[in-house]
Computed example of a mutant assay.
Amino acid sequence: MEMSVLASGSSGNCIYVESDRGSLLIDVGLTCKRIELALDAINRSLKDIDAILITHEHIDHIKGLKVIAKRYNIPIFANKETWIAIDQKNIPVPSEQRFEFSPLQTKEIIGMDIQSFNVSHDAINPQFYTMSQNNKRLSVITDTGYVSDEMKGIIKDSDVFVFESNHDVDMLRMGRYPWSTKQRILSDVGHVSNEDAAHAMRDVITDRTKRIYLSHLSQDNNIKELARMSVEQVLHRYDIDTKNHITLCDTDKETPTEIYTL
Protein backbone atom coordinates (compact mmCIF):
# COMPACT_ATOMS: atom_id res chain seq x y z
CA MET A 1 0.00 0.00 0.00
CA GLU A 2 1.05 3.55 -0.75
CA MET A 3 -0.56 6.82 0.29
CA SER A 4 -0.35 10.59 0.19
CA VAL A 5 -2.42 13.28 1.87
CA LEU A 6 -3.05 15.49 -1.16
CA ALA A 7 -4.63 18.26 0.93
CA SER A 8 -5.94 18.61 4.44
CA GLY A 9 -7.53 21.49 6.31
CA SER A 10 -10.66 23.54 6.71
CA SER A 11 -10.53 24.58 3.04
CA GLY A 12 -10.34 21.13 1.46
CA ASN A 13 -9.49 17.48 2.05
CA CYS A 14 -8.35 14.68 -0.25
CA ILE A 15 -6.27 11.54 0.40
CA TYR A 16 -4.71 9.24 -2.18
CA VAL A 17 -4.36 5.50 -1.47
CA GLU A 18 -2.82 2.93 -3.80
CA SER A 19 -2.81 -0.86 -3.58
CA ASP A 20 -1.22 -3.46 -5.82
CA ARG A 21 -4.50 -3.54 -7.78
CA GLY A 22 -5.41 0.11 -8.23
CA SER A 23 -5.90 3.44 -6.49
CA LEU A 24 -8.61 5.50 -4.84
CA LEU A 25 -9.31 8.87 -3.27
CA ILE A 26 -10.87 9.51 0.11
CA ASP A 27 -12.91 12.70 -0.36
CA VAL A 28 -12.60 15.27 -3.14
CA GLY A 29 -12.77 18.53 -1.21
CA LEU A 30 -10.76 20.52 -3.76
CA THR A 31 -11.66 21.66 -7.24
CA CYS A 32 -11.15 19.06 -9.94
CA LYS A 33 -8.26 21.11 -11.33
CA ARG A 34 -6.50 21.27 -7.97
CA ILE A 35 -6.86 17.52 -7.49
CA GLU A 36 -5.42 16.93 -10.95
CA LEU A 37 -2.46 19.17 -10.08
CA ALA A 38 -1.96 17.52 -6.68
CA LEU A 39 -1.92 14.06 -8.23
CA ASP A 40 0.47 15.26 -10.92
CA ALA A 41 2.80 16.49 -8.14
CA ILE A 42 3.12 12.88 -6.88
CA ASN A 43 3.32 11.47 -10.43
CA ARG A 44 -0.22 10.10 -10.43
CA SER A 45 -3.30 10.89 -12.54
CA LEU A 46 -7.01 11.27 -11.91
CA LYS A 47 -7.55 9.18 -15.08
CA ASP A 48 -6.17 6.17 -13.20
CA ILE A 49 -8.31 6.47 -10.06
CA ASP A 50 -10.53 3.42 -9.60
CA ALA A 51 -12.83 4.63 -6.80
CA ILE A 52 -13.73 7.59 -4.62
CA LEU A 53 -14.86 7.20 -1.01
CA ILE A 54 -16.90 10.08 0.42
CA THR A 55 -16.94 10.63 4.19
CA HIS A 56 -19.70 13.25 4.44
CA GLU A 57 -21.38 16.08 2.59
CA HIS A 58 -19.53 19.14 3.91
CA ILE A 59 -18.11 21.20 1.06
CA ASP A 60 -14.48 20.78 2.14
CA HIS A 61 -14.93 17.08 1.39
CA ILE A 62 -17.00 17.16 -1.84
CA LYS A 63 -16.08 20.41 -3.59
CA GLY A 64 -14.75 18.66 -6.70
CA LEU A 65 -17.40 15.94 -6.89
CA LYS A 66 -19.68 17.50 -9.51
CA VAL A 67 -16.94 18.12 -12.08
CA ILE A 68 -15.08 14.89 -11.40
CA ALA A 69 -18.27 12.84 -11.77
CA LYS A 70 -18.95 14.57 -15.08
CA ARG A 71 -15.44 14.24 -16.53
CA TYR A 72 -14.36 10.87 -15.17
CA ASN A 73 -16.26 7.59 -15.05
CA ILE A 74 -15.14 6.74 -11.50
CA PRO A 75 -17.26 4.68 -9.07
CA ILE A 76 -18.18 6.83 -6.06
CA PHE A 77 -19.05 5.35 -2.66
CA ALA A 78 -21.05 6.99 0.15
CA ASN A 79 -23.72 5.90 2.59
CA LYS A 80 -27.42 6.33 1.80
CA GLU A 81 -27.94 9.43 3.95
CA THR A 82 -24.86 11.15 2.53
CA TRP A 83 -26.11 10.52 -1.01
CA ILE A 84 -29.40 12.19 -0.03
CA ALA A 85 -27.48 15.20 1.33
CA ILE A 86 -25.37 15.39 -1.85
CA ASP A 87 -28.54 15.36 -3.95
CA GLN A 88 -29.97 18.18 -1.84
CA LYS A 89 -26.89 20.24 -2.73
CA ASN A 90 -27.77 19.77 -6.43
CA ILE A 91 -24.58 17.87 -7.20
CA PRO A 92 -25.50 15.49 -10.01
CA VAL A 93 -23.79 12.10 -10.03
CA PRO A 94 -24.83 9.57 -12.71
CA SER A 95 -26.61 6.53 -11.30
CA GLU A 96 -24.04 4.16 -12.79
CA GLN A 97 -21.32 5.87 -10.74
CA ARG A 98 -23.22 5.81 -7.42
CA PHE A 99 -22.52 3.02 -4.96
CA GLU A 100 -23.75 2.65 -1.40
CA PHE A 101 -21.29 1.99 1.41
CA SER A 102 -23.09 1.69 4.75
CA PRO A 103 -21.49 2.36 8.14
CA LEU A 104 -19.75 -0.63 9.76
CA GLN A 105 -19.76 -2.42 6.42
CA THR A 106 -16.63 -3.97 4.89
CA LYS A 107 -16.09 -3.93 1.14
CA GLU A 108 -13.25 -5.17 -1.02
CA ILE A 109 -12.16 -2.33 -3.30
CA ILE A 110 -8.94 -2.42 -5.40
CA GLY A 111 -7.91 -5.51 -3.46
CA MET A 112 -8.15 -3.83 -0.06
CA ASP A 113 -10.57 -4.73 2.72
CA ILE A 114 -12.15 -1.38 3.62
CA GLN A 115 -14.32 -0.94 6.70
CA SER A 116 -16.43 2.15 7.27
CA PHE A 117 -17.23 3.49 10.71
CA ASN A 118 -19.25 6.40 12.06
CA VAL A 119 -17.76 9.48 13.68
CA SER A 120 -19.40 12.24 15.74
CA HIS A 121 -19.75 15.29 13.52
CA ASP A 122 -22.53 17.66 12.51
CA ALA A 123 -23.17 16.06 9.14
CA ILE A 124 -26.09 13.81 8.24
CA ASN A 125 -24.27 10.46 8.73
CA PRO A 126 -20.48 10.94 8.60
CA GLN A 127 -18.20 7.94 8.28
CA PHE A 128 -14.51 7.31 7.82
CA TYR A 129 -12.48 4.32 6.75
CA THR A 130 -9.83 1.82 7.72
CA MET A 131 -8.25 -0.24 4.94
CA SER A 132 -6.03 -3.31 4.92
CA GLN A 133 -3.99 -5.30 2.43
CA ASN A 134 -1.04 -7.69 2.78
CA ASN A 135 -0.97 -7.26 6.57
CA LYS A 136 -0.70 -3.46 6.26
CA ARG A 137 -3.34 -1.14 7.66
CA LEU A 138 -4.22 2.52 7.14
CA SER A 139 -6.90 4.33 9.16
CA VAL A 140 -8.35 7.77 8.46
CA ILE A 141 -10.26 9.63 11.16
CA THR A 142 -10.97 13.36 10.99
CA ASP A 143 -14.08 15.52 11.44
CA THR A 144 -15.15 14.14 14.79
CA GLY A 145 -15.92 15.91 18.05
CA TYR A 146 -14.49 13.04 20.08
CA VAL A 147 -13.01 9.59 19.55
CA SER A 148 -15.20 6.93 21.13
CA ASP A 149 -14.10 3.52 22.38
CA GLU A 150 -15.90 2.00 19.39
CA MET A 151 -13.91 4.15 16.95
CA LYS A 152 -10.68 3.30 18.78
CA GLY A 153 -11.45 -0.41 18.60
CA ILE A 154 -11.89 -0.25 14.83
CA ILE A 155 -8.77 1.79 14.01
CA LYS A 156 -6.40 0.40 16.66
CA ASP A 157 -3.22 -1.35 15.56
CA SER A 158 -2.83 0.49 12.24
CA ASP A 159 0.54 1.01 10.56
CA VAL A 160 -0.45 4.56 9.58
CA PHE A 161 -3.08 6.97 10.86
CA VAL A 162 -4.42 10.11 9.24
CA PHE A 163 -5.68 11.69 12.44
CA GLU A 164 -7.51 14.94 13.09
CA SER A 165 -5.61 17.52 15.15
CA ASN A 166 -7.88 20.43 14.42
CA HIS A 167 -7.30 23.21 16.91
CA ASP A 168 -5.52 24.57 19.92
CA VAL A 169 -8.20 25.24 22.53
CA ASP A 170 -6.67 28.52 23.74
CA MET A 171 -6.24 29.86 20.20
CA LEU A 172 -9.85 28.97 19.44
CA ARG A 173 -11.22 30.56 22.60
CA MET A 174 -9.28 33.79 22.07
CA GLY A 175 -9.79 33.90 18.31
CA ARG A 176 -12.07 35.88 16.04
CA TYR A 177 -14.83 33.29 15.57
CA PRO A 178 -18.28 34.10 17.00
CA TRP A 179 -19.09 32.25 20.21
CA SER A 180 -21.65 30.03 18.46
CA THR A 181 -18.97 28.79 16.06
CA LYS A 182 -16.54 28.19 18.92
CA GLN A 183 -19.19 26.19 20.76
CA ARG A 184 -19.84 24.10 17.66
CA ILE A 185 -16.12 23.30 17.19
CA LEU A 186 -15.65 22.43 20.87
CA SER A 187 -18.79 20.28 21.01
CA ASP A 188 -19.09 16.52 20.64
CA VAL A 189 -20.10 17.02 16.99
CA GLY A 190 -17.30 19.44 16.14
CA HIS A 191 -13.58 18.74 15.87
CA VAL A 192 -10.98 17.27 18.22
CA SER A 193 -8.26 19.48 19.68
CA ASN A 194 -4.55 18.73 19.56
CA GLU A 195 -4.54 17.40 23.13
CA ASP A 196 -7.70 15.30 22.77
CA ALA A 197 -6.33 13.83 19.55
CA ALA A 198 -3.11 12.87 21.30
CA HIS A 199 -4.94 11.13 24.15
CA ALA A 200 -6.94 9.15 21.59
CA MET A 201 -3.75 8.30 19.68
CA ARG A 202 -2.26 6.88 22.85
CA ASP A 203 -5.07 4.30 22.97
CA VAL A 204 -4.70 3.12 19.36
CA ILE A 205 -0.93 3.18 18.83
CA THR A 206 0.77 -0.23 18.92
CA ASP A 207 4.22 -1.53 18.09
CA ARG A 208 3.29 -1.71 14.40
CA THR A 209 2.37 1.99 14.17
CA LYS A 210 4.97 3.91 12.17
CA ARG A 211 3.38 7.20 11.08
CA ILE A 212 0.66 9.60 12.14
CA TYR A 213 -0.36 12.41 9.78
CA LEU A 214 -1.72 15.35 11.78
CA SER A 215 -4.67 16.45 9.69
CA HIS A 216 -7.54 18.89 9.24
CA LEU A 217 -5.71 21.68 11.06
CA SER A 218 -7.75 24.84 11.46
CA GLN A 219 -6.41 27.72 9.40
CA ASP A 220 -7.25 30.21 12.17
CA ASN A 221 -6.88 28.19 15.37
CA ASN A 222 -3.81 26.03 14.90
CA ILE A 223 -0.35 25.91 13.35
CA LYS A 224 1.67 22.88 12.36
CA GLU A 225 4.44 23.41 14.89
CA LEU A 226 1.98 23.83 17.76
CA ALA A 227 -0.04 20.77 16.76
CA ARG A 228 3.10 18.64 16.57
CA MET A 229 4.47 19.95 19.87
CA SER A 230 1.15 19.46 21.69
CA VAL A 231 0.74 15.90 20.45
CA GLU A 232 4.36 15.06 21.25
CA GLN A 233 4.05 16.34 24.81
CA VAL A 234 1.06 14.11 25.53
CA LEU A 235 2.54 11.03 23.85
CA HIS A 236 5.84 11.47 25.70
CA ARG A 237 3.94 11.34 29.00
CA TYR A 238 2.92 7.83 28.01
CA ASP A 239 6.49 6.92 26.97
CA ILE A 240 5.58 6.84 23.27
CA ASP A 241 8.72 7.66 21.29
CA THR A 242 8.03 10.18 18.51
CA LYS A 243 11.70 10.35 17.52
CA ASN A 244 12.56 6.74 16.74
CA HIS A 245 9.36 4.68 16.90
CA ILE A 246 6.63 6.89 15.41
CA THR A 247 6.94 9.78 12.97
CA LEU A 248 4.48 12.66 13.32
CA CYS A 249 3.92 14.11 9.85
CA ASP A 250 2.55 17.50 8.88
CA THR A 251 -0.15 17.88 6.25
CA ASP A 252 -0.92 20.97 4.22
CA LYS A 253 -3.92 22.57 2.53
CA GLU A 254 -1.89 23.21 -0.65
CA THR A 255 1.01 20.76 -0.89
CA PRO A 256 0.67 16.96 -1.05
CA THR A 257 2.75 14.82 1.26
CA GLU A 258 5.33 12.58 -0.39
CA ILE A 259 4.17 9.11 -1.37
CA TYR A 260 4.69 6.80 1.59
CA THR A 261 4.85 3.01 1.31
CA LEU A 262 3.36 1.14 4.24
Rank of each mutant, 00 (worst) to 15 (best):
K253Q: 10
G175C: 10
N13C: 14
A197F: 06
L262I: 10
I155Y: 11
L186K: 06
R34Q: 12
D87W: 01
R184D: 02
S165K: 03
K70P: 01
Y238C: 02
E108G: 00
M151F: 07
D250P: 03
S95R: 12
G145C: 08
M171S: 13
T209R: 05
N222G: 06
S8M: 11
Y260Q: 10
I84Q: 06
H61D: 09
D87H: 04
K182Y: 00
D196V: 06
P126G: 03
I155R: 12
I76Q: 03
A197T: 09
E36G: 03
V67T: 14
N13E: 04
R173M: 12
V5W: 07
N244L: 03
D113G: 00
S139P: 02
M112V: 01
I54N: 02
T247M: 13
F163S: 02
N79W: 08
N90L: 02
N118E: 13
V189C: 08
Q97R: 10
T142H: 00
N244P: 02
E195T: 07
S45W: 04
M112Q: 12
H236L: 09
D143I: 00
E81C: 08
I246G: 03
L138S: 03
A200D: 15
I155E: 11
I185Y: 09
E36M: 08
H245L: 11
K182M: 05
G190A: 11
G22A: 12
S187V: 13
E2C: 03
M131K: 02
I52H: 06
Q88C: 04
L37C: 04
T106A: 11
T209Y: 08
H167I: 14
